[in-house]
Design a protein around this nucleic acid. Structure first.
Length: 275
DNA sequence: AGCGTCACCCGGACGC
DNA sequence: TGCGTCCGGGTGACGC
């Protein structure tokens, strides 16, 4: 399930492809778009999307939270991969794959394919991206996200830490994997109330969040099951998906609990019981 | 208002 | 083989 590091990795690979297909998506002019699964297109009708996208040039590709942000000649295209979405940049000659939901062909003979097994991913085409992106919390890796700022954010709420960290309005980019990893790295229990964290604990969590996200990016993200492939962070998980295996810090058995309806992995010794 | 819970959308994986 | 259940990101409904 693509979270911030996976989305960042995908954005980078589309901007500066390093594989066999060495072209960038930036600078490409859309010749035509083909919506294969109409519900992929958010708000707009699929036909309107195809017509409006044709002829526009991609001028930039950035990331905001878990959104890919394609700046176009006149509009902005936002792509959210949700659980199982992935993007491929390839030659138009390449056969489409199972679960391809949207094909965007470019004038230089290349094509970007949006593949999404679970069909939860969405694509927006809008002239006002702030309407969607403006709802997001701060970027955890940006300089403005300081421990001091984070402390204020946590103190202003009184929620269980894990669901709060995963709330995209609170903080943008964290999903189940990186939240579990960050909480374990910070020796913090996922059920801890946000306003119970001390300054020191907040600093530890702030450092942990940034370090696991950076490590994820450095390892090109994590590849889980059918989802995004290419990363290797999954080989370095401390707790996620390691139920019954030893905690890397103390050797205790990793436990799986449920927090906010999400499978959650903790070390019962390192991560103190909720206050 | 803020918080927690639940249902929903999907199909692959898994257990029986 | 075939059925039922689980899982998960984000949203929206609901109740407290």
């Amino acid at each position: 399930m693509p979270e911030l590091p996976e989305v960042e990795t995908i954005a980078r690979s589309l901007r500066e492809p390093q594989g066999a297909y060495s072209s960038s998506v930036v600078g490409r002019r859309v010749s035509d778009a083909e919506v294969i699964w109409p519900r992929t297109i958010a708000i707009m009708d699929a036909k309107d999307f195809e017509q409006r996208l044709a002829g526009q040039t991609i001028t930039a590709l950035t990331r905001r939270g878990k959104f890919l942000v394609f700046s176009l000649s006149t509009d902005t295209m936002l792509i959210h991969l949700r659980m199982s979405g992935n993007l491929r940049l390839e030659s138009t000659d390449t056969p489409a794959e199972k679960h391809d939901r949207l094909l965007i062909r470019f004038e230089n003979g290349s094509r970007m394919a949006f593949n999404d097994t679970r069909k939860f991913g969405r694509v927006w085409l809008t002239d006002n991206p702030d309407e969607i992106l403006g709802e997001l919390g701060p970027e955890p890796l940006e300089a403005g996200f300081t421990a001091e700022h984070f402390f204020g954010m946590l103190q202003s709420r009184s929620r269980q830490l894990k669901p709060l960290l995963m709330d995209q309005h609170f903080l943008a980019g964290m999903g189940n994997i990186y939240t579990d990893e960050a909480l374990h790295t910070a020796n913090t229990h996922p059920l801890t109330r946000s306003d119970r964290l001390t300054k020191t604990e907040t600093e530890r969590l702030h450092t942990a969040i940034r370090s696991v996200l950076r490590e994820g990016i450095r390892r090109n993200g994590a590849s889980i099951d059918w989802a995004y492939k290419g990363g290797e962070f999954q080989n370095h998980f401390r707790v996620y998906g390691r139920t019954g295996e030893p905690c890397p810090a103390c050797g205790s058995d990793i436990q799986r609990i449920v927090v906010g309806q999400r499978g959650t992995h903790i070390c019962p010794v390192c991560q103190k019981v909720a206050k």
